[in-house]
Design a binder for these strands. Sequence first.
DNA 1: CAGTGGTCTAGACCACAGA
DNA 2: CTGTGGTCTAGACCACTGG
Lengths: 233, 233
Amino acid sequence: MTTDTKQARAGWREIRDEVRRRIHRRDWPPGELIPHETALAEEFGCARTTVNRALRSLAEDGLVDRRRKGGTRVALHPVRRAVLDIAIMRQEIEDTGATYGYRLVQSGIERPPANIPGGKGFDASCLHVVALHFANGAPYAVENRWIDGRLPGLDDAPFERISANEWLLENIPYTGGTLSFAAEQAAPDTARLLDIAAESPVLTLDRVTLDGDRVVTAVKLTYRAGHRFMARL
Amino acid sequence: MTTDTKQARAGWREIRDEVRRRIHRRDWPPGELIPHETALAEEFGCARTTVNRALRSLAEDGLVDRRRKGGTRVALHPVRRAVLDIAIMRQEIEDTGATYGYRLVQSGIERPPANIPGGKGFDASCLHVVALHFANGAPYAVENRWIDGRLPGLDDAPFERISANEWLLENIPYTGGTLSFAAEQAAPDTARLLDIAAESPVLTLDRVTLDGDRVVTAVKLTYRAGHRFMARL
DNA sequence: CAGTGGTCTAGACCACAGA
DNA sequence: CTGTGGTCTAGACCACTGG
């Protein structure tokens, strides 16, 4: 070709990597506007679509910000984005090679307290379920969950046998939600369920699941100290 | 057309949502093969590229598995994928409206202990840095970090003024890594730095950063109880 | 070997937001 | 209003992998 001596035509991954390199190398410093898709397409000798694919990928990684008419800028504050896979509790335990166990502790209709994450988001009365998950017969985590009382099929859900965790994930659609981690001292009843001393540190995970802007379920999972949540960077 | 009365032509988001709906509705149960891109493109009356975009998106969310020649299958184990944005510590603190403060506690060349996450991955001697981050003058988190001693520019890095966190993120490229959360009882010296009682529960975040298969840095961040890490579902 | 997803193209139109 | 990214198309070739 008349262009260059490179062996293969650039694919979107090559373009992504090259742009990333230039950003790291400070050719395009943070906050700086980088060339338009059209310009880059010309430089790399490819279709604009291909450049778009590359830049979109970088935007998803948080390395650049893109706005119509505003162009593409290097992100001011480099952000590392970690991805955390959240499996069903049974899966999580069996993946470690342990035998999974489950016990329903309590279940009933209640009004959710407003002080739990997402608690203010519930429209109506809720099903409150407390359950215990076991690994090899030992208490592994306490599940303290509030579920929108109007979900279809909820009355027939067999929470004596299947964890709400599992039933919801497989039966109720959702569109998003939030999740947070914290370290706390175990509350007395939680400590008793987990069979640990009352002041022990525990790792808690609060998850609010939304369908549109409606709160479907809010759950607090409490793990014994020593449990680790892993994510990929 | 002979097809339907819908007002607008389907975009990739609509197709993604429709497929998601069918999966949730069990039209296509877990493990099942779903129609080819070509078939779906015909059904939705759009180009194959558009279907591809939709299915790729679902694959990134972990809802389906795709393999060349093997087709697209509904994932066996539904997984929720949470995304966690990890900002620089200073950013993290200033975003809460607080004033950021930083103090270097200790710095020196040491051999990393093998019992830290990623500790076995270091080839050579390391720079060991301990620092304290403040929010509004109060201790916020302890940073205990090991850095590959051969990184370019490391000798000149002004860790008395800028946190290693910040310097690394802005100067050293990386390709991936792992991250884990746990709850622990504060170690005595950590508790002293954080100005909390020695047995207090703390939230720890261990991060190992890789460039290729080389460990660039391993860090343990220790936060006081009550700190929350937030993620989007 | 053949079927399926992966990617690229050249062109087009649209939606949004900056000047 | 105008420039930029967002998306769609129709067609093509490629890469991988299951049978």
